[in-house]
Design a protein around this nucleic acid. Structure first.
Lengths: 346, 346
DNA sequence: TTGAAAGCGCTAACAC
DNA sequence: GTGTTAGCGCTTTCAA
């Protein structure tokens, strides 16, 4: 029996609209109308078609449909790195928004390799996706611009400045200001930054840190320690900070990952968080929420970022003439256990 | 200029094989042959076609090609939960294996909702994927079995026992034995387990724990504390364990997530890891590798799991008659900083 | 080596 | 309401 099913599958083609039509005793147009739930079909025909389709196990062939409609109702999402949990939540938003509008979401990935990213994008174009969302892309601008001439594209997780591409970003400058203001509000003056280097949003966060410090009259206390958004970068950065002459009472790490590295360095130095040193991250990843870490951080509305991006591409799929835009969303502060007022002097 | 490009896109259709043929002064058959790099084309025609395609920005239409070939060269991957980093690495393996064999990988997700999973699978079938990989599916068996009658399916991350489905699993029993043997080898006798409940592989890990304890003559020391693979489950479980009459000297948590929760409970209780209590996890996730956590754990060959699964579906795509199989891969021990010999008595 | 023709499974006019 | 027809863009015989 189980052997015969395998053999049957090999031999038997999937039923087509014609098989259903024959079985229901109608023309294939009627079947097509029923499948697309068009109104103008008699209830008798409708019932016959539904029954026949059911009996045959008929499933509409999206390939054929796409060919004749000249559109697939697929939106491709190229995620540069699926290991980056940041994008999981973005994908949630993307999915929900697509489903609402009758589109499927197809994910591909470039494994953080710009070449692989380009070929993933190319695949999406060959598959005739109706639109594309680039999540954290590191492709060269010209490659993206070229694709954008052919198909609506939106980008998240990388602040592209290309005219033909919708971009959805968190307001990183504002997020950093929020973080620094929180620390200053607690009474800190020596607030150091562990930088994010060339990472996405790092420059804006650095600028936000600088301007919030300046606004509080703490320009002289500004201290930017190099970093790279990694755990070990955060660890090394914090070590340098703690060994320095004037130890900061608060450290603002540019992302959660590096904040966790910094946390480790602080503890290794025999200091307590937040009693001796306050620590902030950025991103509000799952890491920050672990009770063992419980990091004060800045939350990016990831879900909403995805939603926005999908809305933007669908908008331009349906009105091809429209111009792409830049969408900026507001971050917010999430206070947990790694920040507190500085120890009183003496 | 930027306005005109948008308008152009709206008006201009993508070039087809006929446009290329006309431009190159050959028939569309020749173009087709060149695009598929068939041999029997004169170098003159080949050059003309290549040039024309280049000039026109021609890109083969995979939809039309799939329709006539009656296959898409797409393998769909339904990931139950993209938030679970476990699958990221599996996807790496999946991708690499697919690319090697000339297939594309298309990811969809069910957001841990069995209903959404089913509809994601349904989409893959409508899109006429040539095969499907289910990653961590929680769909009812009959739904999977029904799909398996139509298309080759492989499953990872859930130990299905369905005849028509290839299954690739880590040998969880063996992994648990490895873990317990490591602790016993260190000199522990009171080794407790924080269970994984109904989670994938939890039953096998529990059985492995039991049998390794029994094999070492420590059957009387067996202690299974309820858990659910979550951080808070691990936290609660460890608290109960530490408050009990005979405090274990080692805790084996069924996965890294719950081990991190347990770690937090141990520290909160004023005890040190590994001096007072040794702690083990399972899965070797990124969490375990954080220096702040540095968890001894069991590594599952995730990459290889993905590779195997893709190989299995492609094998059955290309030879539809073949039977599905069960593939079991070996885990290995990763020693980090949370395990050590127990404190000498007195 | 090339071209003509048929057809993949479906939708979308259009006529009845 | 329903059927007929003409394609969608491509591959694949089959002849030449």
């Amino acid at each position: 029996m189980s052997r015969s099913t395998a053999v049957e599958r090999a031999g038997r083609r999937a039923p087509t609209i014609i098989d259903v039509a024959r079985r229901a005793g109608v023309s294939k147009s009627v079947v097509s109308r029923v499948m697309r739930s068009e109104a103008s079909v008699s209830s008798v025909s409708r019932a016959a078609v539904t029954a026949a389709a059911e009996e045959l196990g008929y499933r509409a062939n999206a390939v054929a449909r796409s060919l004749v409609q000249r559109r697939t109702y697929n939106v491709g999402v190229m995620v540069s790195d699926l290991h980056n949990i940041f994008f999981a939540e973005v994908l949630d938003g993307l999915y929900a928004a697509a489903a609402d509008r009758g589109y499927r979401t197809l994910i591909t990935t470039g494994n953080r390799d710009p070449l692989a990213e380009a070929s993933a994008l190319e695949q999406l174009l060959e598959l005739r996706a109706d639109g594309v969302v680039l999540a954290g892309s590191r492709m060269p601008d010209e490659a993206i611009a070229a694709a954008a001439r052919v198909i609506p594209i939106a980008a998240v997780g990388s602040d592209l400045r290309l005219s033909g591409v919708d971009v959805v970003v968190d307001d990183d400058h504002k997020g950093a200001v929020l973080a620094v203001e929180h620390l200053i509000g607690l009474g800190h003056r020596d607030v150091a930054l562990i930088d994010g280097g060339k990472g996405a949003g790092a420059a804006e966060r650095r600028a936000g840190y600088r301007s919030a410090m300046a606004a509080a009259g703490l320009g002289a206390h500004v201290r930017v320690e190099p970093g790279d958004f990694t755990e070990s970068g955060g660890y090394e950065g914090a070590r340098r900070l703690l060994n320095g002459l004037r130890r900061p009472t608060a450290i603002f790490a540019s992302n959660d990952q590096s904040a966790v590295g910094a946390l480790n360095a602080v503890i290794e130095a025999g200091l307590n968080v937040p009693e001796d040193v306050s620590l902030m991250g950025y991103d509000n990843t799952a890491l920050a929420a672990l009770r063992h870490i419980s990091l004060t951080t800045i939350h990016q509305p990831r879900n909403q970022i995805g939603e926005m991006a999908m809305r933007a591409v669908v908008r331009r799929i349906e009105k091809p003439g429209l111009a792409a835009r830049r969408h900026v969303l507001a971050p917010k502060l999430v206070v947990r256990s790694t920040t507190a007022p500085p120890r009183p002097i003496g």
